[in-house]
Design a protein around this nucleic acid. Structure first.
Length: 482
RNA sequence: GGCCCCGUCGUCCAGUGGCCUAGGACGCCGGCCUUUCAAGCCGGAAACGCGGGUUCGAAUCCCGUCGGGGCUGCCA
């Protein structure tokens, strides 16, 4: 039987890198094994769900190229793929378990439970549910519910007992049921909990492999026992280590972690993010760092995933993004940079402006790590009112700069063909006559022409800017008194 | 506290008893190239948490210890 994997995000927040990596590993394993990748929405937390988060997550998955074969929006043979559409199914499953004696109504109120939990903790006892309602006889319990008394449904864990299972990543894991309380299946208002909905869905959708975050490892015995009670076959589990922030704690917004769509907006390439995320807990083996999705599909195996958590390293992601940007054909680089450029410039480019960008694109591409950086590199080509950087302004106010630029203006008057070769020949000749090094002599010119001490190569920049604009900028500084 | 998981350079990854004088990548430091910045090239510092075993031989196997993380909800 072929593999069926799912990712089941809860729309309670934007898609973060942890979710993205879990999705990636599920997707890779499904593709590697020729199986099916499913996207399900686990939206049983009605207090925190927001439609915009679901949209963000699906958008992020698509942007990353993690297309799903079955699931929300795409559809499939199993109905809705959104848990909020399946509440009646979960309630029915819970009631069946009650009838079968595998679950029972619990009349304890949240307030009572909270109080007992506090007492237990104060007394040093385990804080989990003590199971008292399990002793109520079924007929009596049914009568009380019939009479309208609110009850949650709890799963009756077998006691004594233990659950042993083999995690694909961690090997054999044993948990004694003494440490697993009778957890809630159905809330007293009839809504399912995550445990119930997720497990019922995994059974109904015939999920073969559950690859999810390590935070769910302690819940796995519950899911296994519930699956068995439901008459389903237990999937193979693989618990992926969490991604940590620099402080060693689970990565979160506190660490400045951004959502996937925010990375997109900052100018990261999906392939770079995929490559980077693949390396968090896995590698294709050997010394390779940069590799394609096809390589990953060919080699990926959940069993090879690292056991220990990985720290998210923004600097390495940035480096990798630069690698992917430089690997782009220049035309593709331009196409991808286009929206970021116009956004950064705050205007859309006219055809002749686009040609100017085209003339510089190769040089810009080499020094771009994030697409959103492109605008600042070429801003001087599209704006006349340059705001010099403080460093540039300082150099421009130097009296020596004014006299140098005056000489530059004079020398440039003789340039017939305004191209970078001619400009280079002319300016190098001038600097030689003046006894100035290129390092010394060119920075003032760069400051005047680009408004910055850091720019793409100067001669090309001047060539693309054009004779008139270049001379105007040089003269403006040369004319200063002093 | 209890339960579970984990432990190779600062970080990510390679390593599955001898090929390890522990390799690659990011970052860092130094140098080269150079019109600035990048890119590129060369070089450097930098790790098997600790202690016991097992073995002719341990980063690799076992035990302990210490450290870190997760869970401990009518959240997921």
């Amino acid at each position: 039987m072929s593999s069926r994997l799912r990712i089941a995000p809860s729309p309670t927040g934007a898609m973060h890198v942890g979710t993205a990596r879990t999705a990636l590993f599920n997707w890779l394993y499904a593709r590697h094994t020729g199986g099916t990748f499913i996207v399900r929405i686990d939206d049983t937390d009605e207090d925190r769900n927001e439609p915009r988060f679901e949209a963000d997550i699906l958008e992020g998955l698509r942007w990353l190229g993690l297309e799903w074969d079955e699931g929300v929006e795409t559809g499939g043979p199993h109905g809705s793929y959104r848990q909020s559409d399946r509440y009646s199914r979960y309630a029915a499953a819970a009631e069946e378990l009650v009838l079968a004696g595998k679950a029972y109504p619990c009349f304890c109120t949240p307030g009572e439970l909270e109080e007992r939990r506090r007492e237990a903790e104060a007394a040093g006892r385990p804080p989990g549910y003590d199971g008292r309602c399990r002793n109520i006889d079924p007929a009596g319990a049914a009568a009380r519910r019939e009479a309208g008394e609110a009850a949650a449904i709890r799963f009756a864990m077998s006691r004594p007992g233990q659950t042993v299972f083999t995690d694909l990543i961690r090997g054999e894991i044993t948990v004694d049921h003494d440490h697993v309380d009778d957890f809630v299946l159905l809330r007293s208002d009839g809504r399912p909990t995550y445990h119930l909905a997720s497990t019922v869905d995994d059974v109904d959708y015939e999920i073969s492999h559950v690859a999810r975050g390590e935070d769910l490892l302690p819940s796995t015995p519950r899911h296994i026992r519930l699956t068995l009670a439901l008459g389903g076959s237990v999937p193979t589990y693989a618990h992926i280590p969490l991604i940590h922030g620099p402080d060693g704690k689970r990565l979160s917004k506190r660490h400045g972690a951004r959502g996937v769509t925010e990375y997109r907006d900052a100018g990261y390439l999906p392939d770079a993010i995929i490559n980077y995320l693949s390396l968090l807990g896995w590698s294709p083996g050997g010394d390779v760092t940069v590799f394609s999705m096809a390589d990953s599909i060919a080699r990926f195996d959940l069993a090879d995933v690292q056991k220990n958590p990985a720290v998210f390293d923004q600097a390495k992601l940035d480096w990798m993004n630069g690698e992917y940007i430089r690997a782009l054909p220049v035309g593709e680089f331009m196409r991808r940079a286009h929206p970021y450029l116009e956004d950064g410039l705050g205007k859309s480019l006219r055809p002749e402006e686009w040609e100017r960008f085209e003339a510089m694109a190769g040089l810009v591409q080499e020094r771009t790590r994030l697409l959103a950086e492109v605008a600042d590199q070429v801003r001087f080509l599209f704006e006349d009112d340059l705001q010099p950087t403080p460093e540039a302004a300082k150099l421009l106010s130097d009296p020596a700069t004014a006299s140098l630029l005056a000489a530059v203006v004079t020398a440039l008057a003789d340039v017939v063909d305004w191209n970078h070769e001619q400009l280079e020949t002319t300016l190098r000749g001038l600097l030689e006559n003046l006894g100035l090094s290129a390092r010394k002599g060119l920075q003032p010119i760069r400051a005047a022409v680009t408004g910055s001490l850091v720019s793409p190569p100067l001669f090309e920049s001047m060539a693309v800017l054009g004779r008139d604009a270049t001379l105007t900028r040089l003269k403006a500084v040369a004319a200063r008194p002093g």
